[in-house]
């Protein structure tokens, strides 16, 4: 017989290393033609940090995304941005890039203010222009302004670094401020359990994540969907089997991860509760995406068949045994 159930789980996740300094830095250069180079140590491993950082730079500099080139993760060229881990790069490197951009544009704004004969405070950068906030017809193109800067012998460079505001944890009682900000999430899973075989099929996952601000919504969704599937694997099938220190599952035929056919329908939901210290309000999403998934699935299995598994993964063998016990 097939029985369905629904389960819910929450999570929280501190962004950045726990109670440790973990700074990141970045350089920015605004070139003569109005294009931008960002130098950052931040390693993009597919999650899309290069793109996110480019968006932050473009927004801050008032240029188009196409105008920004990010050179990343080369210790011969780029400054240290720390690890791509702890869901920290959007928040920490994002802030570093934003600060670098801010510094690079100060010369520009100062020059433009003189060109337009207005206060520096009245200017904003957008659409490759330096614009008077309350009178958008009044502007100077960034490229023209750069010409003026160069004529005056001024370069437009910026450096930024950011270290989250944390304190070390007291070794005795663990008290302290381990993170500057936290991501939060709730996931709901619907499962179908075959009570004759113990097989679990995850049908749907509703994954709501508070990311502060989604710099790139489609990439945030991608993180959520991918995370959920690592969570499904963690919940139902993944297990490195070790016998006396020897791994018995050394290939992808014995260590199984979910295939396309194992995927449920995933509904990523972006919640934006802005983080005031984050770049444009952003926090992080990489790791949070998978954290509540297994718990939601286990709770859904309980809802379906009244059996609570406390040892992951929930293999059909394990579940069927418990279902039978429950029956007797």
């Amino acid at each position: 017989m097939k029985k369905r159930g629904v389960g819910l789980a929450n999570m929280w996740y501190g962004i950045g290393n726990t109670g440790l300094p973990n700074p990141a830095s970045a350089y920015i250069e605004l070139l003569d033609d109005g294009t931008v180079i960002v130098l950052t140590g931040c390693a993009d491993i597919g999650q899309g940090s290069t793109t996110t950082l480019a968006q932050i730079a473009a927004e801050e500099m008032g240029v188009d995304i196409e105008d920004v080139r990010v050179v990343s993760a080369d210790t011969g060229i780029t400054p240290d941005a720390g690890a791509t881990s702890a869901s920290r790069q959007t928040y920490i490197s994002g802030n570093a890039v934003k600060m670098a951009a801010k510094e690079a544009k100060t010369i520009l704004v100062e020059t433009a203010a003189r060109m337009l004969e207005v206060d520096e405070d009245s200017l904003i950068l957008e659409d490759r222009k330096i614009v008077v906030k309350n009178d958008k017809d009044k502007f100077v193109k960034i490229k023209e302004c750069l010409g003026k800067c160069r004529a005056e012998g001024k370069l437009t460079l910026g450096h930024g670094w950011f270290n989250p505001d944390v304190t070390a944890l007291n070794p005795e009682d663990g008290q302290g401020k381990p993170y500057a900000t936290y991501a939060f999430a709730t996931q709901v899973a619907e499962v179908e359990v075959n009570t004759e075989t113990g097989e679990v099929k995850v049908l749907k996952i509703f994954a709501a994540h508070d990311v502060g601000k989604a710099i790139n919504p489609i990439n945030v969704e991608g993180q959520i969907e991918g995370g959920c599937m690592i969570g499904v694997g963690f919940a139902l099938m993944e297990q490195v089997k070790v016998d006396k220190g020897n791994i018995k599952t050394p290939n992808l035929a014995t260590y199984l991860i979910p295939t396309a056919m194992d995927t449920p329908e995933i509904y990523p939901i972006i919640v934006e509760d802005p983080e005031v210290t984050g770049p444009f309000g952003a926090k992080g999403v990489g790791e949070p995406a998978l954290i509540p998934t297994a718990a939601a699935i286990v709770n859904a299995i309980y809802d379906a068949v009244g059996v609570r598994i406390t040892d992951l993964p929930v293999t059909p063998e394990k579940l069927l045994k418990e279902i039978k016990k429950e029956r007797n």
């Binding site: 099938m237 035929a253 199984l256 979910p258 056919m261």
Partner: peptide, 10 residues
């Protein structure tokens, strides 16, 4: 058939 996942399963 019973496999450990829905595809690529012995």
């Amino acid at each position: 058939k019973m496999g450990k996942r829905k595809a690529l399963a012995i």
